[in-house]
């Protein structure tokens, strides 16, 4: 529990003070197959947005009424958000879009939570549109999002799981793409990037084989301001850049089924 104490010391501290990563060290990998022991919403109706985005859901209004078009919904999901670099970058780029990071490691999630709170405190009026949740997105994506709710999904530097017997732990697979396609609107974009060539090929081939996704031409991705953030905004991306590593991107659009 020593680490827990450390987290308190480094986290909750002064208003607007960014948490220090050294107090939130966690193992780099987490087993997505194991049973989860954290609360999971039974259905998307139970996701309490007022907790995540208090500025958008002032207290008193209570939970967002479903079916009301005026109620903002989460539109971007960063799956495996890590320390939250991409969310912070996207927050100012799309200031009116609600986005959420999903992370399996509890201490890392704590860090991102504190980081967002600190950013909000020191930049009033900013960073109110980002939040983070501890969850296993490989198991519970449909518990958080309704059909066609998301317009962008991000999978940045996921765990490569090299061994063949562990390939089913990879966050991109034909099976899981079905679920991602379900929560994404037609026209929505899925972004993947990795520094592991083998995984890059794997992710690209899964997306190419999947009938509900099509590759986006390179000219188009070059014009997309989000693409630049993929390799520069995240902690993993910066590390790869520092070490002069190569990255492999696959950016695809959700399409409707052609039969």
């Amino acid at each position: 529990m020593a680490s827990g104490d450390g987290a308190n010391g480094g986290g909750g501290g002064g208003q607007g003070k960014l948490p220090r990563k050294r107090f939130y060290r966690a193992r780099a990998h987490s087993n997505p197959l194991s049973d989860s022991h954290f609360p999971i919403p039974i259905s998307p109706d139970e996701v309490d947005l007022s907790q995540h985005y208090p500025r958008y859901f002032p207290s008193g209004e209570g939970e967002a009424r479903q079916g009301d078009a005026a109620v903002p919904r989460i539109r971007f999901a960063d799956v495996g958000c890590g320390f939250g670099g991409l969310l912070v970058g996207l927050s100012t780029l799309f200031p009116d879009t609600l986005m959420i990071g999903m992370e399996l490691r509890d201490k890392v999630t704590e860090y991102v939570k504190e980081r967002i709170l600190a950013l909000r405190a020191s930049n009033p009026g900013k960073y109110d549109n980002i939040s983070v949740v501890r969850t296993n997105s490989m198991k519970y994506i449909p518990n958080y999002f309704r059909k066609a709710q998301l317009s962008k999904m991000f999978f940045l530097f996921p765990d490569p799981h090299f061994k063949e017997k562990n390939h089913r732990r990879r966050v991109i697979s034909m099976q899981l793409l079905d679920e991602y396609a379900y929560v994404m609107e037609v026209g929505g974009i899925i972004y993947t990037i990795t520094d592991v060539e083998e995984l890059g090929e794997w992710m690209r081939s899964c997306l190419e084989k999947h009938p509900l996704f099509e590759a986006i031409p390179e000219e188009e991705t070059k014009a997309d301001p989000v693409v630049k953030l993929l390799s520069t905004a995240t902690e993993e991306g910066q590390k790869v850049a520092r070490n002069g590593g190569q990255t492999f991107q696959a950016i695809f659009r959700r399409i409707s089924l052609q039969e």
Partner: peptide
């Protein structure tokens, strides 16, 4: 895991049934 998934059965299901019609979520 409390889920019921409704999947469209395509005309050529040998290529996989990728389109999810809905999830029925409510069981605890």
């Amino acid at each position: 895991d409390f889920k019921i998934r409704i999947t469209s059965l395509p005309k050529k299901p040998l290529r996989g049934a990728h389109e999810i019609q809905s999830f029925c979520l409510g069981h605890t």
